[in-house]
Amino acid sequence: MHESLDEIERFVIIRVKEIREGKGLSQVSLSLAIGKSTTFISDIEAPSKRAKYNIKHLNEIAKILECSPKDFWPDKPL
Rank of each mutant, 00 (worst) to 15 (best):
K56P: 09
L5K: 12
V12S: 07
F72E: 05
L65M: 00
D6V: 08
G22E: 00
E60R: 11
R20H: 00
K17S: 10
I61G: 02
I19W: 00
Y53R: 06
F11M: 03
L58M: 05
S4N: 13
E9H: 12
P69S: 10
K63A: 06
E3R: 08
D75I: 06
E45T: 04
S31E: 08
L78G: 12
G35D: 06
L32H: 03
I61Q: 02
I41P: 11
E9L: 12
I14N: 14
V16Q: 01
E9P: 10
K23H: 02
I44H: 04
S26D: 08
S48F: 07
H57F: 08
N59E: 09
K56A: 13
I55M: 15
S68I: 00
S31M: 09
H57G: 14
E9V: 13
D43W: 06
T38L: 13
E21L: 00
K17P: 05
D75K: 11
K23E: 00
Y53D: 08
R20K: 06
S48A: 10
L58P: 07
L25W: 03
N59L: 06
E9W: 10
P69V: 05
N54H: 02
E3S: 08
I19G: 05
N59S: 08
P47A: 03
A33D: 02
I55Q: 14
L30F: 07
I61R: 00
S31L: 09
V16L: 01
K49M: 08
S31R: 13
E7L: 15
E7S: 15
I14L: 14
F72A: 05
N59T: 06
I13D: 04
P74A: 11
K76R: 12
P69A: 11
K49I: 07
P77A: 15
I19R: 03
F11V: 02
